[in-house]
Simulated scan of single mutants.
Amino acid sequence: MSAGPLDGVRVVELGGIGPAPFACMMLADLGADVIRIDRPGAELHPVMHRNRRSIALDLKSPEGRAIAMRLVATSDVAIEGFRPGVAERLGLGPDDVSREAPHVVYGRMTGWGQDGPWAQLPGHDINYIALTGALHAIGPADGDPVVPLNLIGDFGGGGMLLAYGVLAAVVSARTTGRGQVVDAAMIDGSAALMAMLHGYLAEGRWVDERGVNHLDGGAPYYRTYACSDGRHVAVGCIEPQFYASLLEGLDLGDDPDFAAQDDRSRWPSMVHRLQAIFGSRPRDEWAEVFATSSACVTPVLSIGEAPLHPHHVERQTYTSLGEGHMARPVPRFAGTPAAEPRLAPVVGSDGLALLGELGLEAAEVRSHLEAGVVVLPPSATDEGGPR
């Protein structure tokens, strides 16, 4: 398996989509041996399911559940992203695991949490961030809330929170010998990401309206501007010295309209002036003007453009993904660097190897294959594997 700071940590991932696989990607990227239990015929995302091993099990059968539990018992962590109660009905809930393997940390990823009046309701990223105030705060003052992709609820407030919680519990388990349940809810994580704004609001430094504050696009020095070619630049010069660099680059250093950076009464006219200025030239010309400036002005790159930027190229932020790119594992470690990521496996491709690691005899393996308890991909039989 790949090197990294989590080399020696073993994780069993009970299928699922979205934030739980993202958490497992983060763990696998840093060297954890992540074994994904898939349903036969599942489709894997090439990036979100990278750096894994896969076994395809029929969890509706007692034999399939028994194999899953044996895998969990050999691991440090089990992770599931089902609705509350589903893992319990499969016989793979936290109480079941604790009886068989009390050392195992059990990570649970849900939207609304394991309890509460909405725990059983369906939902998606947009719903979780709507209920925490995050969605309300994003967008223009005179427009609707803007959907920030599914980055806040699913991945920042969800998957990363789960990975963080699981690792904290692993540290505890290695001290105490006992695992524990990690209840990671996307709504909880989204709320936690709002910590700074709650502090500002309590201090009277934030107005609970959209597009009128210094970090939500209301300030002329912290927003995007359209350029003459229809592309955009991002301006983020919050500190006075960086704001001064912006004015210098735009030849506005002596303009009285821009003398008071935080005079909110002047913000609308300042924005109007800057819209006209940035709209007079194409994006890449502005990028060149501010390339070595401390004005905090950058081009807004598309997903396809981003990996080609010289800064990313020098730092090797991305690696190839077919005709495109994917980000390399993060964060970076000086002493235990992560290996080059491997794309998602074929579903079930590691089934035989994992059964061998569990010590199953050949006759038992053959019986499971014939009964459909364990399902191998076609290539495994085409290349002379069990038939």
Rank of each mutant, 00 (worst) to 15 (best):
L246H: 00
L376C: 07
S379R: 13
M196I: 15
G356R: 08
C296L: 04
S349E: 15
A68R: 04
L360P: 12
G116A: 07
V365W: 02
L162V: 03
R315C: 04
H312R: 04
L131Q: 05
V34D: 02
N150T: 10
S228T: 12
P341I: 12
A234S: 15
A173D: 02
A137H: 13
L352A: 11
V104I: 14
L274R: 08
G359M: 11
G218T: 09
H368T: 02
Y318Q: 02
G93M: 03
L250Q: 12
V233S: 03
L135E: 02
L162Y: 01
T175R: 15
G85M: 10
L274Y: 03
V11F: 14
G85F: 00
R266W: 04
L161A: 00
T132H: 05
A141K: 12
R223F: 08
A195H: 02
G279Q: 09
D183I: 02
E43W: 01
G217D: 12
F258W: 09
R264W: 00
V271F: 05
A78R: 04
D125G: 05
I79L: 11
A101S: 03
A28S: 14
E63K: 11
V181Y: 09
I35Y: 06
D125L: 09
S245A: 13
G41A: 06
A137E: 14
D183F: 07
L193F: 10
L149Q: 08
I152H: 06
G348H: 13
P220Y: 15
V233Q: 10
V77H: 11
H325A: 15
P331N: 14
E80C: 04
H124V: 14
V97D: 03
I303A: 15
D142Q: 04
G279S: 08
A56E: 07
M1T: 06
E340L: 14
L193N: 02
V147L: 05
G156F: 03
P145E: 03
A87W: 08
D216I: 13
V271P: 01
G113V: 08
I17H: 10
N51S: 12
V300G: 06
Y200A: 11
A327D: 01
E323G: 10
L197Q: 11
D229S: 07
A202T: 14
P377Y: 07
S379G: 14
G18E: 11
G279Y: 06
V147A: 10
Y200E: 13
